[in-house]
Structure formats: structure tokens, C-alpha cells
Design a protein around this nucleic acid. Structure first.
Length: 283
DNA sequence: CTGGTCTCCTGATCGC
DNA sequence: TGCGATCAGGAGACCA
């Protein structure tokens, strides 16, 4: 379940070992998780996957993580539902080595090792781009990053959206980085019902929502992300945000504000938990 | 253009 | 203890 906080935390844990690392080689186990981000056709080569390049920086937009090189190709990695990206120092072994679809042999600032992309359910994937510019063109189509979204940006993005507020928040083209967990948590804290019509919110409500989204995500980043099932960061350490969930996964349990049982419903095909008395419905 | 629904996939969990 | 059913959900494809 990696959402923005998990990816941001992953980025921070991987930066010290990846930035400045030379990619000695790439081993692909499943080609069908690797895609071309541009319209180009043809077989994807190890050069496309950064072989022979040096990683100069990492970047994140929403839930997507990119490995960048200065003048060569770059990679955009989505973890989907079950994806993991892990650096394994030379001599160490990956805890679970099944479903590893791609490995990069690296010689980096923290020594030699392997970067492994593991994704049992294969909802994630790797997209190759010929340059940073090509990737950025793709990222421009995403909404503003949720970690820093302003009231003004959110107002513009929600204007005219005649759909449930939660569905809008989950749409990465509207706002990038909010997934099912943080959508429910943010809506609860903002006191807004998931079925509010997005366009019906007033200025004050949108300002509060933007502020709550930023604060919720910031808190989760600081906690190292949510741990559900086997999420782990780039070093294999778990996050601890799950203990702070107030609605996600708590259907039927008492609301932490009013004590009434939390309701479960389906919005945009996703399980949604909310409090009917504490979350205001508009529109 | 918009918004709604379907679909991909494996592993954890639950009822019998 | 085994086994089938169910659920989890990110995001692109597809349709009205």
C-alpha cells in the first residue's frame, strides 16, 4: 500500500546509497513489468535501464519515484500495491527473493550492492524515459504534489468536479499522492464526508482540507510511512503510522471523536470508512 | 472533455 | 489440517 509518505520515506532512505552510484549491470527477470514511457517502440535495452550510467539524483511526484541521470536515460518506478525497492549490500541477502523482476548491480557511495525491484502482484512497474525532460513532460500531467498542495491549487483542481470528494482526491491527475488510507484519514480530520460533491466545497472548507492533507502526509512521512502487511523502506525497516489511523480499517469501531460506530461504504470502488456524525456532507 | 466501471495480480485471512 | 472464497487496492483501459 505505498502512498506518498511511503515513497517519500523510501526516497530518503535510498538517496544516500544510490546518488552517485554507477550502474554496472542490470538483470531483468520479467520484461512485462518494464514499459517505455514514450511512444517509441522496440526492445528495451539494459542501457535504457541505466546500465553504464551514474545515478545523479532521485525525484518523487505523488506516488512515483524516479532514478535520474544527468544526460542519459532515467527511470520512473511505480510500486503499485505490493511493490518494494530495496538496496542489498554485497554479501547480504534479500529476505524474500521471489517476485524480484529487476536487479541493478551498483557501485555506490555506500559500497557495492544490488538494488532489487520486487512486486508480487505486479500492479507496479518501471517506465523508461530517454531523458529527464521526457519524464517531466509526463509528470506535468499529474496534479500538484499532495505534500505541498496549497489551498489555491486545490481550489483550482476541484472546481467544476461533479463527483464525490474522495473520488477526486484519489485521482492522481487532480492531486498526486493521496491513496485510500490517507484519503479517509484526511477527510475525517477535515470533518468532510467522502460523498461531498467536490465542486460544492466553499473556500474555507478547501483551505482546511489542503492544510489537513499536508499535515497528515507530513506526519506519516515523519513516522516512516504506514505499516500494513509487509511494507518496508529501502533498508527493510517497517513504518509505524498504522497505530495513528483513526478511520482506515476501523469500520464498526467507535469514532475517536463522538464514539458512534464508524460506517463502511464504497466510493470509487474503494472501501471507505467515515463517521456520519462528525463528517459534514455538502453538495 | 467528464466520470463511472472493469481489470490486472498474489497473498493473507476466514469459514467450514 | 486443508481448501475454496473473499478481500486488499493503484491506475490504466474502456465506455457512456
Amino acid at each position: 500500500m505505498p502512498e506518498l509518505p511511503e515513497i517519500e520515506h523510501l526516497k530518503r532512505t535510498l538517496e544516500p546509497v544510490l546518488v552517485g552510484a554507477a550502474v554496472l549491470g542490470v538483470k531483468i527477470s520479467r520484461r512485462d513489468v518494464i514499459h517505455t514511457g514514450t511512444a517509441r517502440s522496440g526492445r528495451i535495452t539494459s542501457r535504457d535501464l541505466l546500465a553504464g550510467c551514474t545515478i545523479t539524483s532521485l525525484a518523487r511526484r505523488g506516488k512515483q519515484l524516479a532514478l535520474l541521470t544527468d544526460s542519459g536515460p532515467c527511470l520512473c518506478i511505480h510500486l503499485g500495491m505490493s511493490g518494494q525497492l530495496r538496496f542489498v549490500p554485497e554479501g547480504a541477502r534479500l529476505h524474500k527473493a521471489d517476485h524480484v523482476h529487476c536487479r541493478w548491480q551498483l557501485d555506490g557511495p555506500a559500497g557495492c550492492g544490488t538494488l532489487a525491484f520486487r512486486d508480487p502482484r505486479r500492479f507496479g512497474g518501471i517506465w523508461v524515459y530517454p531523458s529527464q525532460a521526457a519524464l517531466m513532460q509526463r509528470w506535468e500531467r499529474l496534479g500538484p504534489d499532495a505534500l505541498t498542495i496549497t489551498a489555491k491549487q486545490l481550489t483550482l483542481r476541484l472546481a467544476g468536479r461533479n463527483r464525490p470528494l474522495k473520488a477526486a482526491l484519489l485521482d492522481q491527475h487532480i492531486i498526486a499522492g493521496v491513496g485510500n488510507i490517507y484519503a479517509d484519514e484526511s477527510l475525517f480530520t477535515a470533518g468532510l464526508h467522502p460523498l461531498c460533491i467536490a465542486a460544492a466545497l466553499d473556500t474555507k472548507q478547501i483551505a482546511k482540507l489542503a492544510k489537513v492533507i499536508r499535515a497528515t502526509l507530513r506526519g506519516a512521512v515523519a513516522a516512516g510511512g504506514s505499516t500494513l502487511r509487509d511494507y518496508a523502506d529501502g533498508n527493510g525497516n517497517a513504518g509505524w503510522f498504522a497505530v495513528q489511523h483513526r478511520v482506515y480499517g476501523r469500520s464498526g469501531q467507535p469514532c475517536t471523536i463522538c464514539g458512534k460506530p464508524l460506517t463502511r461504504l464504497l466510493v470509487a470502488q474503494r472501501t471507505t470508512v467515515s463517521c456520519d456524525s462528525c463528517q459534514q456532507r455538502v453538495g
